[in-house]
Design a protein around this nucleic acid. Sequence first.
DNA 1: TTGAAAGCGGTACCAG
DNA 2: CTGGTACCGCTTTCAA
Lengths: 336, 336
Amino acid sequence: MTGIDDVARATGVSIATVSRALRGLSNVSEPTRERIQRSADELGYVASSSASGLASGRTRAMGVVVPSVSRWFYTTVLEGIDAELRAASYDLILFNLGGMNGDRERVFHRSILRKRTDALIALCLDFTADERKQLSLTGHPVIVVGGPVRGLRHIGIDERAVARKATEHLIALGHREILHLGGEDDDGLNRRVPIARRRGYEDAMIAAGIPTRSEWAIQGRFSLAHSREVVGGLLSSAVRRPTAIFADSDEMAIGAMLAIREHGLSVPDDISVIGIDGHDLASSFGLTTFAQDPFAQGSAATALLLNELGGRPARATSVRAPTRFILRASTAPSHS
Amino acid sequence: MTGIDDVARATGVSIATVSRALRGLSNVSEPTRERIQRSADELGYVASSSASGLASGRTRAMGVVVPSVSRWFYTTVLEGIDAELRAASYDLILFNLGGMNGDRERVFHRSILRKRTDALIALCLDFTADERKQLSLTGHPVIVVGGPVRGLRHIGIDERAVARKATEHLIALGHREILHLGGEDDDGLNRRVPIARRRGYEDAMIAAGIPTRSEWAIQGRFSLAHSREVVGGLLSSAVRRPTAIFADSDEMAIGAMLAIREHGLSVPDDISVIGIDGHDLASSFGLTTFAQDPFAQGSAATALLLNELGGRPARATSVRAPTRFILRASTAPSHS
DNA sequence: TTGAAAGCGGTACCAG
DNA sequence: CTGGTACCGCTTTCAA
C-alpha cells in the first residue's frame, strides 16, 4: 500500500506538506497543493484511518447504537444518519445490540470504548445506569434519537401528545369504544415510548369523559404479525367489539386491519383504525396516521454532533421533532 | 483516558507484558495475567483501536457494503453478519451506497480504502470494472452475499433454478396464464438477479410448452407499493387477466395480492400468487413462497472471512444457499 | 510556505 | 516468562 511518504517522494516535498495539502489546510501554496493532489490520485493514496486517528485523536467515524436493524424506524433513522455522514466523509460504525438476546454488555464495555468513534448516536433505547456511565466514559458527545432517555438529550416526537391527538381524532369522529393496541416490548426498545403513548391515549379518553376498559388495552409488540394475531383473538372472543382502534405504530395498525378483514368486518365501516409513524406501507393500506420523519431526525442528530465536533456551539437541550396528520380511508365517523 | 502505560504502572510490569496479557497470548504467567486483568478492569482500560490497528495491521473490523439499508433482504443479511461479528468481537463498518442517488464513487475511492477494515462483505451489488478494481486494491478478502458478481465469489441461492421451480409450481396446478412480476431495479441492486429470475420463469414456461406474453412481463421494482399499483393498473386495463402471478419477491407478491383484492377478485380463487424470499410478512398474508435464509447467508459469509483472517484455509469458490418451499393459501389449482 | 522531528498508543521482535 | 525498544503511518508543533 502506498503511504504518505510515497506521495512525498513522488512530489519532492516533505510528508508534512503532503499531509497539510491533502487535508486542505490553508498554509500550502496552490500550485504545490495541486501537484500533491495529482500524484496522490495517481498513486491511489488514501490516508490510513488508524494512523491519522492515532495522531490526531479524531477518527472521523460515528458510532450508532441500535437495538436491532430490522425495524422500519431504526433503518429509516439510519438512512438519515448515513446521508449526513457521507456528506461529511465520516464513516459509520454500527453497534447492534441484536434484540434482547444479544449481549449488550460487550457493546458497552468494550466496543464503544475502543476509541473507534468520535461521537455516538443511540436509537431509542433504555439504558441502565451502568450503560449510561459507560457512555459518558467515552467522553464523546452523545445524542439519542427516538424516545427520551433519562440524563441524555434527544431528538424525537412528543410521544404523549401525538398519541393523544390520534385518539382525539377518533373521538372527534364520534367513537367512544376505542381500543388501544400498545407497543409493549421486551427488546432494548425504549419502554418509555409505549408508556408515553398509553398516557396520551388515556389523556384523550379522560378529557372526553370516556371510561377506558382494561380488555381494550392489548399489546402488539410493535409487530404486524403479532398485532394481527392478538386483534384476531380479541375479535373472535366474547369481548365486546370496539368501534375504533388506536395503534402505537403503523405496522401494528396494519396487522389490526388484516385481522379485522379476516373476520369479515370492514375498515372503516365496522372499525376505524389509526396509527403512528407514516410507514411506507401506510399509504398502500389507506391507513390514517400521524406521520413522523425518522430520516430527518437521524440527519438532524448527526448534523448536530458534527457541528459540535467541528467546534461549533453545542446545544445541550433536546429537540422536538414534528409530526403530520395524514387522513386516509381507515377512519370514519362512528355510526353507533 | 487511561492508556496501557497506566495499567503497566499500576501493576508494576512492562507495557509489553500488559499488551500480551490482555490479548490472551500464551507467554504470560497466570497470576501475572490475573493481576493485570484486574487492574485493567478497575481502571476501565480498553485498548485504542487506532493504536493497535496501526501497530498490528489489523483493525478487527469488517466492512459491509449495502445498496440501501431499508430492504428486508439487506437488513436480514446484516443481522446475520452482525451476530457472527459480535461473537468474534469484531466491529462492523457500514458503507451504505444510499440508493441510486448516493455517490458510490466516494465509498469506493475513499472510505473503503482507508484501512479501517480487515475484510469486506458486499450485499448483492453490481460493480463497475473500476469498483471491482478498488475492491481488490484494498488487498483484503471480499465476498458477495446475494446475487453473483463477475469475478467475485459469493454466497446466494440459485436464482434461476428457484424462479423456475416457483413457476413450475403454478404450472403443476394447471395454470397457463402466468404473469411474471419482475424486480427490475435502478438502484445498486444486482441487475443479474432479476434477469436470472426472468430466465427461470422462461425456462419453466418453455419446458411446459406455454407461450409467454409480453404484456405479462411487468416490473414491480422490488417494492410492495409499486407492485400494487402496476398490478392494479393491469387489472383495470383491457389486458387479458392472468390466472396466476409469479413475483420475484414476497413484498411484490403481497403488493399484487392487495391489488387483486382491491379489484374485488380473490386470491387464490381468481388468481394464484407465489413469491420468493420467505419474508416475515408472507405468513401473515398466507403467501406461498420459496424461502431463503438471508440471516444464515450473512453469518456464513462472515464466518468464512473470519476464518481466512484467522489464517485458516480460504475457499475461493462460491457457495450455494438453500431454499425451502412453503405452501400456503395463495396458490390453488386453476379452474379454467 | 515548507521541513524536521517529536509524539499518538500500542505491537512485536529480540534479549535476558 | 518478562522487559526494552524499534517501529506502524500520520499529525502537529516549532523553526527556518
